[in-house]
């Protein structure tokens, strides 16, 4: 009699404990799931609030906001064309420089360098990615801009400036500030991102493939160009888009060296502007609601463009992961 009462009590307390555990488990699960969904909410929040904040600019200027290069803070006429153009041009210059260099670095670190040298050099290149962007900006303004203005731009003016077609791109005042300088600084900043993605995916190429090619008499370059690159193509493009996303959204480095002039000009040596630099420079001084709204609208445009670029990058990289069977 007593024994069964005791076992009943034990069974009851067991049941209570199981129920308590279950309750806590559910609570824990809901909490962490909530945190996971929070990430999605934040991203949607960024898109929606910048769209909401820019509604006045979109409503007032309509489509003209995208195609007008007018930026009149007193007359309150705002158009996004000049900063959008600057963003695209500087990012394009950065990619033209960074993509081949990153490929070279990745090739060097996976095929050419002696094994003992690979890790330290790779770490050093990745350190470049860790330096805060404001340091790039200061270095750019105080060290690189004078060099560009004194030596590089006069040389470009004299030599390439007279060429047909591309000549006008390289004709301009020797200020040092401008699209070309900003593009070069951006290139230095995105090289570590692109090269580390490339290096990682190059390492995933099966040794069997490479050695088969070597056995047939291929040179190192032929292995890189005809075996490694085709095998890793999607991921390499993904890495390039990742760098492009960085270059489009970079703020401080560009703000220092771009010159911040709202003007469309063909020459890469003229000062210009970019979306991020415009916001960083002018937001604190924005004195009217429509001015501020235009800047937030610019932020929305920047977010949409980088979102698309980064989404493409992610999809490409994911395809590569699937191939590896991850």
């Amino acid at each position: 009699m007593a024994a069964s009462a005791e076992s009943l009590a034990i069974a009851q307390s067991d049941e209570q404990r199981a129920r308590r555990d279950g309750r806590k488990d559910r609570l824990f699960r809901r909490t962490v799931a909530g945190a996971g969904v929070f990430v999605l909410v934040m991203l949607a929040g960024v898109a929606l609030t910048t769209l909401w904040g820019g509604r006045e600019a979109f409503a007032t200027f309509g489509f003209k906001f995208l195609v007008s290069s007018e930026w009149d803070t007193i007359g309150k006429q705002f158009g996004a064309l000049a900063p959008v153009y600057g963003t695209l041009v500087t990012a394009a210059i950065a990619m033209i420089i960074a993509v081949p260099v990153s490929f070279g670095i990745a090739l060097y670190l996976t095929e050419i360098a002696p094994t003992w040298l690979r890790t330290p050099v790779a770490s050093a290149i990745e350190l470049l990615a860790g330096i805060p962007s404001i340091i790039y900006g200061m270095w750019g303004l105080f060290v690189f801009v004078p060099i560009m203005g004194k030596y590089v731009i006069p040389w470009l003016n004299d030599h390439i400036g007279e060429w047909p077609l591309i000549g006008p791109l390289f004709k301009g005042p020797p200020l040092g500030l401008g699209m070309l300088t900003a593009g070069i600084v951006l290139a230095i900043m995105v090289i570590p991102f692109i090269s580390s993605v490339m290096r990682e995916v190059f390492l995933t190429v099966p040794t069997r493939l490479k050695e088969s090619a070597y056995a047939l008499g291929s040179t190192t370059w032929e292995v890189a160009w005809d075996i490694v690159l085709p095998y890793t193509r999607t991921a390499v493009i993904g890495g390039i888009f990742l760098g492009l996303g960085r270059a489009l959204g970079e703020t401080m480095a560009v703000t220092f060296v771009l010159g911040n002039v709202h003007r469309l000009s063909l020459s890469l040596l003229e000062p210009g502007n970019s979306i991020a630099a415009t916001i960083a420079n002018e937001f604190a001084e924005a004195d009217s609601e429509i001015f501020r709204s235009s800047l937030i609208a610019l932020a929305f445009l920047l977010f949409v463009v980088t979102f698309i670029v980064l989404a493409i990058a992610k999809l490409m990289l994911r395809q590569m992961e699937r191939k590896e069977g991850k």
């Binding site: 999605l40 991203l43 609030t49 910048t50 960085r246 489009l248 959204g249 980088t306 980064l310 992610k314």
Partner: peptide, 30 residues
């Protein structure tokens, strides 16, 4: 859902920081 969170988390990882500042400005500072 997990894959979606990972995907968008990676985009947030590379999103321009100035836009995140703009977001907080609109939601909090303003």
């Amino acid at each position: 859902l997990g894959e979606a969170i990972r995907f968008f988390n990676d985009i947030l990882l590379s999103a321009p920081s100035i836009v995140l500042g703009m977001f907080v400005y609109t939601v909090v500072v303003k």
